[in-house]
Structure formats: C-alpha cells, structure tokens
Amino acid sequence: MFDHIVFGVSDYEESKSFFLKSLKPIGIVVVDEGPLGIELSTDGKSSLCIRRNGEKTTPLHIALVAENRHQVDEFYQAALASGGKDNGAPGIRPEYSSHYYAAFIIGPDGHNIEVVCHENESQLPDRE
C-alpha cells in the first residue's frame, strides 16, 4: 500500500547504523544515500527513508514484515545489540490474532520499531 515512509532523526549516523544492523535480518539494504539521508528497502518497491534533520520528532510506530518468525527473533537480538531498548520480546500477540508473531524495539529517537510475521502454526517448519 505504501510507496515510502519518511522520517527525520536527531543523530543521522547513529540512526543509520541502528536501522541497518537491526533490520539486516529481514533483508533491508541501502537503495540510495545522499544529502537528504538514506533510503532503505527489502524489495525495491517500497522504502523507509531516514532524513537528516538534527532534531527529535514525534515518535512513530513503524511495523515491518518478516518472512518468518526466525527473522523476528534475529531482528530483536540485533536491535538490542545495536542499542535499542526492549518494548516487547518476540512472541505471539493474541490481542491481534492467534498467529501475529512480533517483537518491538524503541530506537534512538524513541520510534517504536516492530517486526512482525503472520505465519500460522501450519506454516511453521517441523522442528525435531
């Protein structure tokens, strides 16, 4: 539905590092970087744009899709290791649906970053 989401950050280098490391598990790559900031994407169709504005903005809730639950877990660990603050460990969120598996991290500017997977139990690989 969205083509791109744009938001400013107070410390561009810190945020750039945080987002690149935290979102690597879901395949985020740099599409472009220039004077305005950086454009990130997983598919080249929609993008997350981080802009250099030098001031804190109103925190956003940004939810990104993972292909599987393992990516959600990896995001959570990478985001914590990159300085993010826990806002909800990976797990099922039954208040949304019985197969809404997500993790939440507060990023450098207070943005609530969520990675979610919508796999149901029948889509999970066998674990023996």
Results as ranks from 00 to 15, higher is better:
Glu13Gly: 00
Ser98Met: 13
Met1Val: 12
Lys56Gln: 06
Tyr12Gly: 02
Arg69Trp: 01
Ser82His: 01
His118Leu: 12
Glu39Gly: 09
Phe2Asn: 11
Gln123Lys: 15
Phe7Gln: 05
Lys85Thr: 12
Gly91Trp: 10
Glu55Met: 05
Phe75Gly: 06
Glu128Tyr: 13
His111Val: 07
Thr42Leu: 06
Asn68Ile: 11
Arg127Gly: 00
Pro125Phe: 02
Pro125Arg: 09
Gly110Asp: 10
Ile50Leu: 04
Tyr76Lys: 08
Arg127Thr: 13
Gly107Gln: 02
Ile106Ala: 05
Asp86Cys: 07
Val115Trp: 09
Glu67Trp: 00
Ile50Asn: 01
His111Cys: 06
Asp126Met: 05
Ser98Glu: 15
Glu14Met: 10
His99Cys: 12
Gln77Tyr: 04
His111Asn: 15
His99Ser: 14
Cys49Ala: 13
Val116Gly: 09
Val115Gln: 07
Lys16Pro: 11
Ile28Pro: 10
Tyr100Ser: 03
Ser46Val: 00
Phe7Thr: 02
Ile26Lys: 08
Gly27Trp: 03
Ser97Ala: 14
Asp3Val: 11
Glu121Ser: 11
Leu80His: 02
Glu128Asp: 14
Glu55Leu: 06
Glu114Asn: 09
Glu114His: 07
Glu14Phe: 00
Ser10His: 04
Gln123Ile: 04
Asp11Thr: 04
Asn87Met: 00
Cys117Asn: 10
Gly44Asn: 08
Pro94Gly: 08
Ala66Tyr: 04
Leu60Ser: 10
Leu80Gln: 06
Ile38Pro: 05
Ala103Met: 11
His99Val: 05
Ser22Ala: 15
Lys85Asn: 07
Glu119Pro: 00
Asp3Trp: 11
Lys85Pro: 00
Gly84Asp: 04
Ala78Asp: 09
Ala89Ser: 14
Leu48Glu: 06
Phe2Glu: 10
Ser122Lys: 14
Val31Lys: 15
Gln123Ala: 15
Glu67Gln: 12
Val30Arg: 06
Arg51Ile: 01
Tyr12Gln: 01
Val9Asp: 04
Asp11Cys: 03
Gly37Gln: 10
Ile5Pro: 00
Ser46Thr: 11
Phe19Ile: 02
Gln71His: 07
Ile38Tyr: 11
Asp73Arg: 12
Asn53Val: 08
Gln71Lys: 11
Phe19Cys: 02
Pro35Val: 04
His4Arg: 10
Ile38Gln: 06
His118Ala: 08
Glu121Asn: 10
Asp109Tyr: 02
Phe19Val: 03
Asp126Leu: 09
Gly34Asp: 15
Tyr96Lys: 09
Leu64Glu: 04
Gly107Thr: 03
Asp11Arg: 03
Arg52Gln: 10
Ile28Ser: 07
Gly27Ala: 12
Asn120Phe: 05
Leu64Asn: 05
Val9Glu: 04
Ala102Ile: 02
Ala81His: 07
Phe19Gln: 01
Pro90Leu: 08
Ile113Phe: 03
Asn120Asp: 15
Gln123Glu: 15
Asp3Glu: 13
Glu13Thr: 10
Ser47Arg: 15
Arg69Asp: 07
Asn53His: 07
Ala79Met: 09
Glu13Val: 09
Cys117Met: 08
Met1Ile: 10
Ser82Met: 00
Glu13Ser: 12
Asn87Ile: 00
Glu114Ala: 13
Val116Trp: 12
Leu20Met: 14
Lys21Ser: 14
Ala102Thr: 06
His70Lys: 14
Lys85Cys: 00
Asp126Pro: 00
Ile62His: 02
Ser98Cys: 07
Leu36Gln: 14
Phe104Cys: 11
Phe19Leu: 03
Gly54Tyr: 05
Cys117Val: 07
